[in-house]
Each structure stands twice: as structure tokens, then as C-alpha cells.
């Protein structure tokens, strides 16, 4: 049974270094945690709020206390054993959720401090180049299935990225090698969309996208879709929206590859928006969301719908969509920031 315990001012609940598996809940009074900053060694103090648990981490993790808990004013606490504490939080998942947030923030902070200390290291690699490099590593090691995964992912996230052309070439090379190696042919667990191929082998000039290949019919079919898709993406980036739109549409009507159809549907919406056809754009995204409720670009799509309303001067509806985005994405997601900014502008005007 959890016990209610009274602590007098100036007493100590536990010392740093103690092995003690109790969890405390402060009911009333004042408790301060004294610890040394891990980076500077400086002495730090954290005040516990009433209603707050403390001593959780070391109790759950079964390691020595990292701080000294000092009582500043006469205090009442409830003391739990670990099983008792677990019982309480299991019946109140909100507490777990809150703690998860606190802990993950702490973890992030430590990782950030660590990166700062190691900043001269290769740690600060940017994710785009990093992902591409992983693919190259596995390609070099002749682990083609893994190389293919990394390159395909690269193209999914950075379709017009710095290394996209090379990634396409590498995918093709990896597929070819995998076939001659005979063991790790492209696997069915990977979405078929990834069997993209757009040019010569590794030795071909990077810009070549037209050289023909002697590859099997089924592969050619799929590569054609991939090629078409990336061509269209490139048209879009050159602001040739009408041409891009036609290409994306023909991928959708071609009906060959669901992954690319889904991606193209999203791009069609972006084209319509860029062409200022807002009603069409909204209608399009609404249909897309109905067809693919788990579309990877769902939140982005909602942002476009919100923007369409804004363009049509229906700021109320626009705001509703932006607000929905806030609840569906994390605070540091780009779309979340965009939505917040849009709301600020609307509310400011």
C-alpha cells in the first residue's frame, strides 16, 4: 500500500548515489532536487511542484539516485514501491504519456549536448546525404537488397534531391547485380514502385536518362512508371505545371502501380494549386483523402486545402483546416510550422 509520509523542513528524502526504489508524490510543501549538470558539473536545483512525482527514473531504471531530494518546508508525500507506482500509472495512462514526453525531451537534450561536444565529428551529417551514403555503403558491400532499400527511400523523400539521379542509376545497377548474383533479386516485400530505373549503369554519365536497357518486360513496365513520375516531378520543379499535370494524370489513368498512383494524385493537387485552380484543387484532394485515408502526404494535402480556402478569402474555413493540421502533426514538422504561421497571419489581419 502506498504510504502517506510527513517530512520536516531541512530533512533529506534521499541522497545522490542512494540505491532506493521508492517513487514519491509531493502532496504539499516544498521539495527541491539538487544535482550536478552533466556537462559543466555545476550545481543545479529543480523545484518539485505539488502533485508531481519524483524519483521515478532511478526507481524504474533500478540505478542509483542522480540527485539529492531536499525538503525546504514541512511536506506531505505519498511513497510508492515500484509495483505500486506501476499499478497507479497503468490505471492512468495520462501520467505515462506526460512522463514519456518529459523523458523524451531529456533524452533529446542529452543527445544534443553530446552532438555539441562531438561537433567536430562526422556526427553532423545531413540526413539527405547520410541516407544516400548508406545506400552506397551497402552497394559497395554487395548487399543489394539493403542498398535498394536505402536508395528507394532516398527517392521517396528527396525525389529531386542532390543525389536523385545517381540514386536512380545505383538502383538500376543494384538490381542488375542482384540478378546476376542470383540470391537477392528485388524482393516482393518492397513496394513495386521502388523498381525505378532511369538511365545507364553506374558508369554512364549522370545526366543520361534516355539510354535503353535490356531488361525484362515486367521491369521495363515498372521503370517506365517511375521514370515518368520523376520526369513529371522535374517538370513541376521547372514550373511547367500544365505539362507536369498531364504526366501525373497519365500515370494515374495508366493504373499500373498503386504506389505511384498515390504519389501522382498528391502531385496533381499541387499542380492544380500552382495553376491557381483552387476549387478543382480542393475537390481533388478531398477525393484523394477518401481514396487513400492513410496517404503519406495527408497532412500536406490538408494544408493545401486550407490554403485554397484562404485564397478564396474564406479565412474561417482555412483556419479550421490549419488547426486540424496542428493536431495531426508534431510541432517541429515543417507543415505544422507552416500551419501555425498561416493561423498567426489570419488572426493578425
Amino acid at each position: 500500500m502506498p504510504k502517506a509520509v510527513e517530512y520536516k523542513a531541512n530533512s533529506i528524502v534521499y541522497f545522490k548515489g542512494d540505491n532506493n526504489d521508492r517513487v514519491f508524490l509531493l502532496k504539499s510543501g516544498k521539495v527541491s532536487l539538487k544535482y550536478n549538470d552533466i556537462e559543466t558539473g555545476q550545481e543545479m536545483y529543480d523545484l518539485i511542484q505539488t502533485g508531481e512525482f519524483f524519483g521515478v527514473k532511478s526507481a524504474l531504471g533500478k540505478y542509483p539516485r542522480e540527485e539529492t531530494a531536499m525538503v525546504l518546508q514541512d511536506s506531505n508525500m505519498i511513497v510508492f514501491s515500484v509495483p505500486e507506482f506501476e499499478q497507479v500509472v497503468l490505471n492512468n495512462t495520462r501520467i505515462i504519456m506526460k512522463m514519456l514526453k518529459v523523458f523524451s525531451n531529456q533524452l533529446r537534450r542529452i543527445q544534443k549536448q553530446m552532438r555539441n561536444v562531438l561537433s567536430s565529428d562526422e556526427q553532423a551529417v545531413n540526413p539527405e546525404a547520410g541516407l544516400f551514403k548508406i545506400g552506397e555503403y551497402y552497394l559497395k558491400m554487395k548487399r543489394y537488397a539493403q542498398a535498394l532499400y536505402a536508395f528507394r527511400r532516398y527517392l521517396t523523400y528527396y525525389p529531386s534531391g542532390t543525389f536523385s539521379q545517381q540514386a536512380l542509376l545505383n538502383i538500376e545497377a543494384a538490381e542488375r547485380y542482384a540478378k546476376t548474383q542470383g540470391s537477392t533479386a528485388p524482393t516482393s516485400s518492397q513496394p513495386a514502385y521502388a523498381q525505378a530505373a532511369a538511365g545507364g549503369g553506374l558508369d554512364a554519365p549522370q545526366t543520361s536518362t534516355t539510354s535503353t536497357q535490356t531488361i525484362s518486360a515486367s521491369e521495363e513496365e515498372l521503370s517506365a512508371v517511375a521514370q515518368k513520375y520523376y520526369n513529371a516531378v522535374s517538370l513541376f520543379s521547372q514550373q511547367k505545371y500544365r505539362e507536369a499535370l498531364e504526366e501525373f494524370k497519365s500515370i494515374v489513368t495508366g493504373g499500373q502501380d498503386d504506389e505511384y498512383i498515390a504519389k501522382s494524385l498528391f502531385e496533381i493537387g499541387r499542380c492544380l494549386f500552382a495553376m491557381e485552380m483552387y476549387d478543382k484543387c480542393m475537390g481533388h484532394f478531398t477525393t484523394m483523402i477518401q481514396r487513400y485515408p492513410k496517404h503519406p502526404d495527408l497532412v500536406e494535402a490538408l494544408y493545401y486545402v486550407g490554403s485554397c480556402y484562404e485564397k478564396k478569402n474564406d479565412t474561417e474555413k482555412a483556419k479550421n483546416f490549419y488547426k486540424k493540421i496542428l493536431s495531426m502533426s508534431s510541432e517541429d514538422a515543417a507543415v505544422n510550422r507552416k500551419a501555425r504561421k498561416a493561423i498567426r497571419i489570419i488572426e493578425g489581419s
Partner: peptide
């Protein structure tokens, strides 16, 4: 969720 919480305490340590 509880399992996750414990995992986080270990990772932090």
C-alpha cells in the same frame, strides 16, 4: 506504455 517508459529511463541513463 509502461514498458516504453522503462525503456526511456534506461536510454537516458
Amino acid at each position: 506504455a509502461l514498458k516504453l517508459l522503462k525503456l526511456f529511463t534506461k536510454r537516458i541513463y
